[in-house]
Structure formats: structure tokens, C-alpha cells
């Protein structure tokens, strides 16, 4: 038996970093244990991309022109699909309740959770893009910029999407509702992402466009976790 310590309400604050690392490690570990599921959004991504040559036209000229848009839309849909899992398991298992009751700021916890979600869903999409880019006959320069925009853009998708995932937590038909709430908010990211690649193809300077995407990322990281944290409290309160 352990000895119980003397009990007086404690005043000192508790360390934040170990708690955040604990969240990160738990999430990555849980994702690693169900790693076969992690391939699903990736396979979905490839399949959606394959639909375009089949459904619209396999002509090299068409694919080269719309390749960036196709890849961006597919990445967006794939992210949307994976978002449903972001908080759902934690919510069902009661882990989310415990997270809300940690004395450490919920904002940071959410930040870490979304980051770990991006590591296992967004990053693989970026890594997969060069292969698909070649299949869509994009030239090397465009593929490079496309990967860059996706690298900056997919975390924005994850952070904005987390708000929707938190708002629809525990609701019936959450999946379709989540898409409904989030797709309008994704439009600027999509526009700047594909626009950058279009500008590259047209030979325009793109530094400022990438800076705009970067600005979106900064805004998403600083603001979205606040809204997500508020939404999580509401959803847990309602459960």
C-alpha cells in the first residue's frame, strides 16, 4: 500500500511540457497500434485523384493544367474524412473528459492533439503528392511548389477542421454535418494553394502567395485551438 500524502489544497502550478508530451506520446502510440487504419485516408486520396483522368479526360494537357487543383481537392476531402476520428475515440472512451480536467491549458492540449493528427494524416498526403504529381504529368517545378503549398496548407486544414470536429462531437450524422460546416472555411486555403501552383506555371513570382499561405497557417494555429477548446467544452457538457 502506498502512503497517502498530507492533504491541503495545493497552490503551486504544475508543469505543462510533460503533460503535453504525454498527450503527444499517447496519441501517436494509439495511432501506431491501429496503423492499418491510417492508410485509409491515403488510399482515399489516391482513388479520388484517379477518378479525374477516368471521369474527365486522360489528356496530358488537361491533367497538367488541372493537376494541382485535383490534388488539392483530393487532399482536402481526405483530411475532411479523417477529421471525424480526431476527437471521437477520446470522447467515447472518456479520455476527453480527463483532458478537460487537466490543470494545464486546454489550448495547448488541443494544439498538440491537432499536430499529432496532422503528423499521421496530413504529412503522408504531402509525401504521396510527388508520385501522384508525376502521374498527372505535372512538371518538376510545379510538383515542388505543390508539395510546399500542401506542407503549409494541410496543417491549416487540420486546425480549421478541428473546430468542426469538436462542434459535431457526439452528434448523429456528424460526418456529413462536419463537411457542411468546414468546407466553406477551407475555400481560402484551397484558393491560395492552387493559385500558387497556377502562378508558378504562368511564370509569375510566387513568394507573396506562399507568404499568404504561411499567414493563414499562423492565424490558424493561434486562433483555431481557442475555438476548438470552447467547442470541446460545449460538446462534453452536452454529452
Amino acid at each position: 500500500m502506498l502512503k497517502l500524502p498530507r492533504l491541503t489544497p495545493r497552490q503551486e502550478s504544475q508543469p505543462v511540457l510533460p503533460a503535453l508530451l504525454g498527450v503527444l506520446r499517447r496519441d501517436l502510440l494509439a495511432n501506431f497500434r491501429r496503423r492499418q487504419e491510417l492508410f485509409n485516408p491515403l488510399i482515399f486520396f489516391v482513388m479520388v485523384v484517379a477518378l479525374f483522368p477516368l471521369g474527365v479526360s486522360p489528356e496530358v494537357e488537361f491533367l497538367r493544367q488541372s493537376g494541382a487543383g485535383i490534388l488539392w481537392v483530393a487532399a482536402l476531402l481526405s483530411t475532411l474524412l479523417s477529421l471525424d476520428h480526431l476527437f471521437r475515440h477520446d470522447f467515447d472512451e472518456g479520455v476527453l473528459e480527463q483532458m478537460l480536467l487537466q490543470p494545464q491549458p486546454l489550448y495547448l492540449m488541443v494544439l498538440v492533439k491537432v499536430f499529432s493528427h496532422w503528423l499521421v494524416t496530413g504529412l503522408p498526403l504531402v509525401l504521396m503528392t510527388p508520385v501522384l504529381g508525376v502521374m498527372l504529368h505535372l512538371d518538376g517545378n510545379s510538383i515542388g511548389y505543390l508539395c510546399l503549398t500542401l506542407l503549409v496548407g494541410t496543417p491549416v486544414l487540420s486546425f480549421i477542421g478541428a473546430i468542426g470536429a469538436a462542434l459535431t462531437l457526439g452528434l448523429r450524422s456528424a460526418g456529413i454535418l462536419l463537411s457542411l460546416l468546414i468546407i466553406p472555411l477551407y475555400i481560402p486555403v484551397l484558393i491560395f494553394g492552387t493559385g500558387t501552383v497556377t502562378a508558378v506555371a504562368a511564370g509569375l513570382p510566387v513568394g507573396s502567395y506562399i507568404a499568404l499561405l504561411g499567414a493563414l497557417l499562423v492565424v490558424a494555429i493561434t486562433c483555431a485551438p481557442f475555438a476548438t477548446a470552447a467547442a470541446l467544452r460545449i460538446s462534453v457538457s452536452n454529452s
Binding site: 466553406p184 481560402p188 491560395f192 460545449i234
Partner: peptide, 20 residues
């Protein structure tokens, strides 16, 4: 409260959407 959060997120996004 959930709708209020959504509306606020939306209103922050409207200028960004318009500009983009």
C-alpha cells in the same frame, strides 16, 4: 453556444474568404 462559436468562426473567415 455551439452555434455562437460557429458564427464567430465564420465571421472571422468572411473577410479572408472575400479577399481570397
Amino acid at each position: 453556444r455551439a452555434v455562437a462559436v460557429l458564427v464567430l468562426v465564420g465571421v472571422v473567415n468572411i473577410p479572408i474568404i472575400k479577399y481570397s
